[in-house]
Design a protein around this nucleic acid. Structure first.
Lengths: 145, 145
DNA sequence: ATTACTGTAATTATATGGTTTACAGTTGCT
DNA sequence: AGCAACTGTAAACCATATAATTACAGTAAT
């Protein structure tokens, strides 16, 4: 699947763990390990969903909205990576004389949709809170108090 | 995901519907709509699993083994497309000083594995027989007796 | 005004996936 | 034996998809 889903999870957990729940695209890009413009693109989509608020101008950046921790990975999947199961190339073709060739595409489409539904159900069971908790646990294991 | 999975499903249903359960790579390639060399590559893997027998030389080709219709799409997925959920690019990195960056990879890995397990469970519920039946139904609907 | 940000689109670089070519190995036929 | 029709496999080539980068307009704090 698409890596923007991965980026979204990363950005939101990072913001949640930040004091002030805020950071700018440059800082986030360092942690994600990509270019700030890419972060701005993904966070622009998350803003449209109401997950973050952006502040332009000096001292600006992205602010995590309250309640966003309840968002599930399924929500983020649907927003950023829906349809990623079906490959860009598929076999057969409507116009071909072969019975299999002309019908397989529709059947495989159904199968990919079903697979995606199964995947979404799984991802709906994981919230950002779950991911954040795991990060915190991993961190405290590395630096025990 | 990888389109070889799609090709495998196509080839096996095609062979099952053929009189003699046999065809050569050129004929199959026409139906799948790709190059014969690609068909040979995929069917080579299916041979190693015992799903087909190949016959080299004049009049050769691929023969569907008895019982292969019981194979599930999950089996084919594991053989040809396992691991396709995780994107080639992922965020973060062990070496980074950020707590999120250094831990996210392992956590996302687990999530991708879980998603893959969910997907496999779904695909395990579909056999080649199911796909073949659907092709037959679609065909008889187009040409009613 | 100037500086430090975001928003967004266009461009370039790189990776992936599919096609094609090539040729050695195998088998049936005459 | 020799030819023709196949598979097996790897390498080269090409197209497409994805990520990085550049660029610049818009916005807000000082």
């Amino acid at each position: 699947m698409n890596s923007e889903f991965n980026i979204a999870v990363h950005c939101l957990t990072l913001l949640s763990l930040k004091e002030e729940r805020m950071a700018n695209s440059e800082e986030i890009a360092k942690s994600v390990c990509t270019h700030p413009a890419r972060i701005r693109k993904v966070l622009g989509l998350l803003r449209k969903q109401g997950y973050v608020t952006t502040k332009e101008g000096v001292g600006g950046g992205y602010l995590l909205n309250p309640g966003t921790e309840k968002v599930t990975l399924g929500d983020l999947y649907r927003l950023l990576a829906r349809g990623s199961l079906k490959p860009s190339w598929c076999s057969g073709g409507e116009e071909l004389p072969c019975e299999v060739a002309s019908n397989i595409e529709g059947i495989m489409d159904q199968i990919y949709s079903g697979g995606e539904a199964a995947l979404e159900r799984y991802l709906d069971g994981i919230t950002l809170t779950d991911v954040i908790k795991q990060i915190e646990e991993a961190g405290s294991a590395a630096n025990p108090t």
